[in-house]
Design a protein around this nucleic acid. Structure first.
Length: 645
DNA sequence: TTACGTCCACTTTTT
DNA sequence: GTGGACGTAA
């Protein structure tokens, strides 16, 4: 791969820690890959290069590109993954360093369930008190920014002091429950790793000795907790961090672009390099993106120039509602496909997974193959959770949420019955005792205990365990779900996935940390497909043709961020990231008015007719073309009555 | 205690 | 269009 002088200088910079400021499309990934290649050429052991990314998708892409560049065999030896993945692997590999022999990783859903229990126990019923989702966010944010909970609550929320105290009490209870069930939430993975790294000099030394080079992608999205990890691991290892402050879109997770801005203060002697030539997009696409950024009160000091030169202008398509939007996009896609453009050249970007459902329905209806990235996850669907609860209670008998789920799926067992049974179960230490209790307590439903016994019997074989569990629970689930035919297919998929794993524990853990989306799993043999993706997941990717849906007031900036300048600016960067994904063509679709758009209560006052802020409302006409042929496209469609509500 | 009907508020982004 | 809260019948 050919590098330009700036990229080469970065990739081959040998003397010190480096921060590379790389604008969108300036060959960030190529440069990181080239650096790994350079290091390997210099006889650095591939296992001593740690390559950290922010999302799983970026990690996958990086592994892929690395494989092509330095060969799959060498690439496989370079530890590459997300912060969470790396930390969890370390925890598993050296449990004695971290004092964590057995634990169950819980996902956001479980976290919310547990939070709900804590909230109910401490607060009881109080509709005015923050909901479990909000509480979970507080808890997570405080930990990711490495602040004491109280300090964070005082500074970032407007709750009264007594309310703050009650929040603290709930979160404390949540922590206790977590410990009791031997649960680890996502933040615990990073937190435990970072804590031991900074607390125990012996552990720190052992970890520091393992790596010579730390390569970090998307540095602007790292949060203070992740910085603690990097800071603890560096020296003698060298840092090579790549980032772009204009693409920082994870402040809601505690991302702190001081990790970029204050880099040279924190890492004495570090060098800062810049990549400024955009190789991805045409100038017209960059003109629009540059304009958007220039409107910001923040100074990004960034103007991207296209090395590829000129192309066609971005197109703005104004529609009446999201049905028309979906219809327009599928028609346009089909036209292009007939003109011999492969499906895979097209990416549809959405602000939220929820907002994409109209387009998704239309794609299905017109039988256009697609992959949805960031959508409903396979393991989040109810019937899969039902099945997994059976495996989870065997794997970790302290897993109270799984017990609750497992027990209440049987007829005539509700929350109360399950809760008292769980309390009894927790006092028992032997699996046989538990099975005994269950078969006696629910003698009218022998299958409840039997299912456990039979799964335990085949525990050594993951596919057998899944098959047994599915067999045992099918009659139950068939009655529970009226769309069982559709859901049943997922069990086949689970059986297929099961073959890849040596132990049930590994199987459960992999898909908690790395949940595959439904369409991703079922279409993995399908490689020519349109990509439907959230903007957040799309960072670092690109496509020749990009459709950006929902570009309308209420979405950019999102209603929930209106009134808070920092949040609004983050929204601007979200739109910026979305625009700069396009290589040749950028198509922005959205409704003209925010008719029918959902506006939450607390933001109603901001809406005032046309007063809703919208980033493109002052856009100069020459930056975009509008789609004038649009009306005639619809001449064969049904006539919509003006009396339509 | 469980199961089911009805009304209500709510609907961002990821590990 | 859905999940949670609440009331009521079995």
């Amino acid at each position: 791969m050919e590098l330009n002088p700036q990229q080469r200088r970065a990739a081959e910079f040998d003397d010190a820690d480096v921060l590379v400021l790389a604008g969108a499309g300036t060959g960030k990934t190529s440069t990181i890959v080239a650096r790994v290649a350079h290091l390997v050429r210099r006889d650095v052991d591939p296992r001593r290069i740690l390559l950290l990314t922010f999302t799983r998708r970026a990690a996958r892409e990086m592994r892929h590109r690395l494989g092509r560049q330095i060969g799959a065999d060498v690439a496989k030896r370079v530890p590459t993954g997300t912060f969470h993945h790396f930390c969890l692997q370390s925890l598993r590999r050296w449990p004695e360093w971290f004092h964590c022999a057995s634990l169950t990783i819980i996902d956001r859903d479980d976290q919310l369930q547990l939070m709900k229990l804590a909230r109910a126990a401490v607060i009881g019923k109080d509709p005015t008190f923050p909901k479990s989702g909000e509480l979970a966010n507080y808890y997570s944010f405080a930990r990711n920014t490495n602040r004491p909970l109280k300090e964070y609550l005082d500074e970032f929320t407007s709750h009264e002091p007594d309310c703050v105290a009650r929040i603290e009490a709930v979160l404390k209870d949540y922590g206790a429950r977590k410990q009791q069930c031997k649960y680890f939430d996502y933040d615990d993975i990073l937190h435990l790793f970072a804590r031991q790294l900074h607390r125990d000099p012996v552990v720190r030394q052992k970890l520091q000795r393992r790596y010579d080079h730390l390569l970090v992608d998307e540095m602007q999205d790292t949060n203070p907790l992740q910085w603690l990890i990097l800071d603890g691991l560096r020296e003698p290892a060298k840092l090579f961090c790549v980032g772009d402050d204009a693409q920082s879109i994870y402040a809601f997770r505690g991302a702190d672009f001081q990790n970029v801005h204050a880099f040279t203060e924190r890492v004495p002697g570090a060098s800062v390099l810049k990549l400024e030539h955009n190789y991805r997009s045409t100038q017209e696409i960059l003109d629009l993106s540059n304009w958007l950024l220039e409107q910001s009160p923040l100074k990004y000091d960034k103007r991207l120039t296209a090395t590829r030169g000129s192309g066609s202008k971005p197109v703005r398509v104004e529609v009446d509602d999201d049905f028309e939007e979906a219809d327009w996009i599928t028609r346009d896609l089909m036209q292009r496909h007939e003109g011999d453009d492969p499906w895979r050249d097209h990416m549809i970007l959405t602000r939220s997974a929820w907002a994409a459902r109209g387009v998704e329905a239309s794609l299905i209806e017109h039988e256009i193959p697609y992959r949805f990235i960031g959508g409903t996850q396979l393991l989040q669907s109810a019937h899969v959770k039902d099945l997994l609860s059976l495996l989870r209670v065997i794997h970790n008998p302290s897993d109270q949420l799984a017990w609750m789920r497992y027990l209440t799926q049987w007829p005539r067992i509700g929350e109360k019955t399950a809760a008292t049974t769980i309390n009894q179960l927790l006092t028992l230490t032997e699996p046989a005792q538990r099975e005994d209790l269950l078969s006696k307590r629910f003698s009218n439903q022998p299958r409840l205990a039997e299912s456990i016994t039979e799964c335990v019997a085949v525990w050594a074989s993951v596919p057998d365990v899944i098959a047994t569990a599915a067999d045992k629970l099918t009659p139950l689930l068939e009655r529970k779900y009226d769309d069982w035919d559709r859901r049943q297919k997922d069990f086949k998929l689970l059986k297929r996935l099961a073959k890849k794993h040596a132990t049930v524990a590994d199987f459960l853990e992999t898909y908690t940390l790395d949940p595959i989306s439904e369409s991703e799993a079922s279409n993995d043999d399908q490689d020519d497909a349109v990509t439907l993706i959230t903007v957040h997941s799309a960072k670092g990717t690109e496509a020749p043709v990009c459709y950006l849906i929902g570009v309308q007031p209420g979405n950019y900036p999102h209603v929930r961020s209106i009134g808070d300048e920092q949040k609004e600016e983050e929204e601007r960067r979200v739109l910026y990231v979305a625009m700069t994904r396009a290589k040749n063509e950028l198509i922005l679709t959205g409704t003209v008015r925010s008719r029918g758009a959902f506006v939450p209560h607390h933001n109603r006052s901001f809406q005032g007719g046309s007063g809703q802020p919208f980033f493109l409302s002052s856009m100069p006409d020459n930056l975009c073309a509008t789609d004038l042929d649009f009306e005639t496209d619809f001449s064969d469609g049904p006539i919509l009555s003006f009396r339509r509500p």
